[in-house]
């Protein structure tokens, strides 16, 4: 989140609300950024010398602090972009945990199958919501962020399909 806030400030000095709005535009399918988190992160950036307060605006409403990225902040962002993100560690998602726990703790087949099928439905509903937005109007970055969300859901769904099918085949007992 630190680096994302730096990236959002790279567009020009902004107050917390503008940073939040830009984030929500950049990642329309992600959970909207909470104000508390924005202000806490901006405070940390200033403390660490990655951003600075450049003015306080009032504009007829409550006073707003405007932040700008520092040279150190730009350097931090450059270094972050240069480093590939570590591939996600599989097995830590709840969808995997629940299905595996259902498989290992319930009577063979039925309960685990119900868990996987209900999860499929929840995923399909989310997929439906994601697809309701017309991506044609989006710029390329927004479209790609959206596509990432769709493809990840689809990967989960394919895994759930495999899980449901695998539940048909008897497997050896787990070693104790």
């Amino acid at each position: 989140m630190t680096e994302l806030h730096l990236a959002l400030l790279l567009r020009g000095p902004a107050h917390g609300y503008e940073v939040k709005q830009a984030y929500d535009r950049w990642f329309p399918d992600a959970k909207p950024l909470a104000f508390g988190q924005v202000y806490a992160t901006l405070g940390r950036l200033v403390r660490d010398g990655l951003a600075e307060v450049v003015e306080t605006r009032s504009e007829g409403g409550p006073e707003r602090t405007v932040y700008a990225v520092t040279d150190e902040g730009r350097e931090r962002l450059r270094a972050w972009l240069a480093e590939p993100a570590p591939p996600a560690v599989a097995g830590t998602e709840d969808v995997v945990r629940k299905t595996v726990v259902a498989l290992r703790t319930s009577a063979p087949g039925r309960a685990a199958r119900a868990v996987a099928l209900d999860q499929r439905t929840a995923h399909l509903r989310r997929m439906r919501e994601l697809q309701a937005r017309d991506p044609a109007a989006d710029d390329v970055a927004t479209r790609l962020a959206h596509r990432y969300a769709v493809l990840h859901l689809d990967a989960d769904l394919r895994w759930l399909d495999e899980a449901v099918e695998a539940l048909d085949s008897p497997t050896p007992e787990e070693p104790r």
């Binding site: 995923h123 399909l124 509903r125 997929m127 439906r128 697809q131 689809d154 394919r158 399909d161």
Partner: peptide, 12 residues
């Protein structure tokens, strides 16, 4: 699944 998700109802 992306096609199925466009439906109102799924029958599996």
């Amino acid at each position: 699944n992306t096609a199925a998700a466009l439906a109102d109802r799924e029958v599996r």
